[in-house]
Structures are given as C-alpha cells and as structure tokens.
Amino acid sequence: MTDDVRILTTALDPAALTAELVNDRAHSQGALVTFVGMVRDLTNNPVTAMQLEHYPGMTEKSLTAIIGRARVRWPLGQVLIAHRVGLLHPGEPIVFVGVTGSHRREAFAACEFLMDYLKTEAPFWKKEFTPEGERWVEAKQSDDEAAKRWRAARQQQQ
C-alpha cells in the first residue's frame, strides 16, 4: 500500500498513470477510481494558456498529509496523485488522482475527498493568460465548502 505523489513539469499522461495502477499486480484490488482535471477548453473561453506555480517541498508534504487523512477514513490500496506545474494550454490534463480499494464505495469517496482537499490545501496557484492580459485565479468559496462538507460528515459519524 503506497502513496505516490508526483509533480510534473512535462505532459501528464492519464492513460499511462492508470495503466501503472492496473498493472500493479502486487497490490491488486477490486476497485480503481481515477479523476482527471483538465484546463477548460470552451468556445467562449478567453483563456489561451495557464501558468501553474507551486511551493516545492510543501506541495509534496501537503499532498502526502491529505492522503494520510483519507487512509484514516477508508481502507485504501494504492493512491497516486500527479499534478502539473508550468505552462499549460486548454484541453491539457492538470491533475490525476487514482485510488484503489477492495470495493468501489471507498475508492469513489476517497478520490473525491482527495480532490476536495487538494484544491483548498495544496499550495498550487493558477495564473490565466487571456487576450486582455494575465490574471491570478481567485480561490472559490464553493471549493472551501466542498472540503468543509467532509469535516461535517465526520462529526456526524462520531
């Protein structure tokens, strides 16, 4: 059962990462859930590129800590989180979260939990480039609320 956290400066390949988890026979599990986040590619989207900055060192520690918290809640097999940094373009994958478990329920729940906390706690920052200029993306309150939801659910269980 291993935690695998990768910060990538070159293209993130979701199929290759998924294959790593599928082919990991030593830790074979009944369920594998993956999530891939991508730079939005919409016809009316003025964003031409995105710069992803992070805090080397803290990023890895923070993601590993989030995985630790997921493992306290659910019995999980492998957890693999990969996140891009540097320059990205619409349609490119930014983040991959893969979770294996004995059953689908814990794998689905843990994957969502990991993404909700990654978005609010892992030190990554996005800057968007548009024809009008560049701008730092503002944090969304809905992301904070998504992470808080898990704390509330935990308190109800106890």
């Binding site: 805090y55 930014i94 609010t120 030190p123 990554f124 920052w125 730092w136 993306v137 503002e138 944090a139």
Partner: peptide
C-alpha cells in the same frame, strides 16, 4: 516562513 494567497490548484 512562507506567505501566499489561498490555493487554486487542481
């Protein structure tokens, strides 16, 4: 010590 805005990754 580090100072930064709220995270916007993922």
């Amino acid at each position: 010590v580090a100072f930064f805005p709220p995270a916007t990754g993922g």
